[in-house]
Amino acid sequence: MIVFILLVVRPVAAEDAEATRWLERMGPALNMTTYRGVFVYARGDRVHSMRIAHRFHNGMVEERLVLQDGGDGEIVRKGMNVVCVLPERGRIRLDQVIPSGPFAEAFANELVPVSRWYQAELVGEDRIAGYDVVIIALTAKDSHRYSHRLWLEQNSGLLVKSHVGEPGGKVLEHFQFTSLEITDHIPDGEFEIQTEGREITRNLEDVASGEPVERSSMDGWNLGWHPEGFVPAAAPRSGRGQAVAFSDGVAAFSVFVEPQGKVRMPIGASRIGATTVYMRELKAGSGSFLVTVVGEIPPKTARQVAESVQIGDALAQHSGGS
């Protein structure tokens, strides 16, 4: 039986092999490559561009990102230390914007069998921001997730462009370097904060090396269903400790379960590019909860996840009593 399965699986695996090899390079390349450039990101009707300098120096990732539009702001990271200076304007408080979680490494190490949920294919070559790239198509094998297209620089494997969208259809999210320089050395000076403003510093170490993922947050509630292949992922603690993130190695979604607050939210799905926010109200015991699913997943998937949330007795009673 096992032999039979191997025989059946092998030809497909061989076709995917090259694409998979590229995908394996992508994670390390994001950290280990030294580069500077400007990238643009668009989803829905929002477009942002940022300037980035990134290096791997003394065994530590260092990077500086500077907002290119909508006011001054920058993020400087040295290893697990992150300092943000962000514009005060806008409706979001500064401290909410700080990346408070482990960065790419935490995930890159996880061996999620991407090829089970996506058909990975090397579909061509191109040139982006002056560099030769290979194009990898990750086509979703079911309707629970979006398809992705990745442009990886040929020598380093660095991700220089990506699309997220419906299979064979509309592109919902764009990411692309518009200028890029992959180099051996970037001087220290390019990793210093230069914007004046309120600085917020945070150390990621505590969060990153925290407790096992399973215990991080699903206190008092559980998911009755989630799309196959999504596993609980190392997520930073949310303010109220009720969020949990899932990833299938390519896409991710987060589930929040909170007692209903003062603000009444509409029930249903909102879409910003490839990102879906699905909200629903859930009554349990004498309490009422707001269930929110946010992720780069189709609205129907988000709804199905949200509708599968069950509140445990303990949380229901606790909420009712408070």
Partner: peptide, 24 residues
């Protein structure tokens, strides 16, 4: 919620810059 998810995600898909971009 978008922000918190972006934080999980910056992280998440191991995409580095894309994560930052989602955050911003």
């Amino acid at each position: 919620y978008l922000l918190e998810h972006a934080q999980h995600n910056s992280v998440g898909a191991g995409r580095g810059s894309v994560g930052y971009a989602r955050l911003v």
